[in-house]
Amino acid sequence: MGNTNQSKARVLTRRTFIGRAAAGACVIAIVPVAAWAAAHAEESDETSVSLGYRHDTKNVDKKKYPKHDVSQRCVNCAMWQGAAADPWAGCAMFGRKHIAAQGWCQAWAKKPG
């Protein structure tokens, strides 16, 4: 009987180990994907400052950018690289950083169509 209890303990330990190892492998597989997620452009970034980028088109300085119109948003710009429903996406002007759909910069160009 002593042997049976030891066998059960080993099976449970082995099962626990395999379960934990599988869970750990899943975490390891997911972490690099999260690390690849693009950073958001900040309004204080060098590119943002040079383009007058704002996360919200309503916050653009009308005196500094007189051609700006609140209907101009990153999501309806020709350089927007995301879907219309994406809150953040890539832009040809910002490299690997994502910009806000409701944002604006002076490189804004009407999306064709």
Rank of each mutant, 00 (worst) to 15 (best):
Q6V: 09
Q6F: 08
S7R: 14
K8Q: 13
A9S: 14
R10T: 10
L12Y: 15
L12I: 15
R14Q: 15
R15I: 12
T16Y: 14
F17Q: 14
R20Q: 05
R20C: 05
A21V: 01
A22W: 09
A23N: 04
G24A: 02
C26Y: 06
V27D: 07
V27G: 02
A29T: 08
A29N: 08
I30E: 02
I30L: 04
I30A: 04
V31Y: 07
V31W: 05
P32N: 01
P32T: 01
P32Q: 00
V33N: 10
V33T: 08
V33F: 10
A35Y: 11
A35V: 11
W36M: 13
A39I: 12
A39M: 14
A41H: 12
E42M: 08
E42Y: 07
E42P: 04
E43N: 04
S44E: 09
S44A: 10
D45N: 11
E46S: 06
E46Q: 07
E46W: 07
T47D: 15
V49T: 08
G52T: 00
R54P: 00
T57M: 00
T57R: 05
K58R: 10
K58D: 08
V60H: 03
V60Y: 03
V60S: 03
K62T: 13
K63H: 12
K64C: 07
Y65D: 07
Y65K: 04
K67I: 07
V70F: 03
V70E: 09
S71E: 13
Q72A: 02
Q72P: 05
R73V: 06
R73E: 06
C74M: 12
C74G: 10
C74S: 12
V75I: 11
N76V: 15
A78F: 02
A78T: 03
A78I: 01
M79E: 12
W80N: 04
W80A: 05
G82S: 02
G82L: 03
A84Y: 12
A85P: 03
D86Q: 01
P87Q: 03
P87H: 02
P87M: 05
W88Y: 08
A89T: 01
G90F: 00
C91Y: 08
A92V: 00
M93V: 13
M93T: 13
F94Y: 10
F94I: 04
G95R: 00
R96Y: 09
R96F: 10
I99N: 01
I99M: 03
A100K: 04
Q102L: 03
G103E: 03
G103M: 00
Q106K: 13
Q106H: 11
Q106S: 10
A107T: 11
A107S: 13
A107F: 13
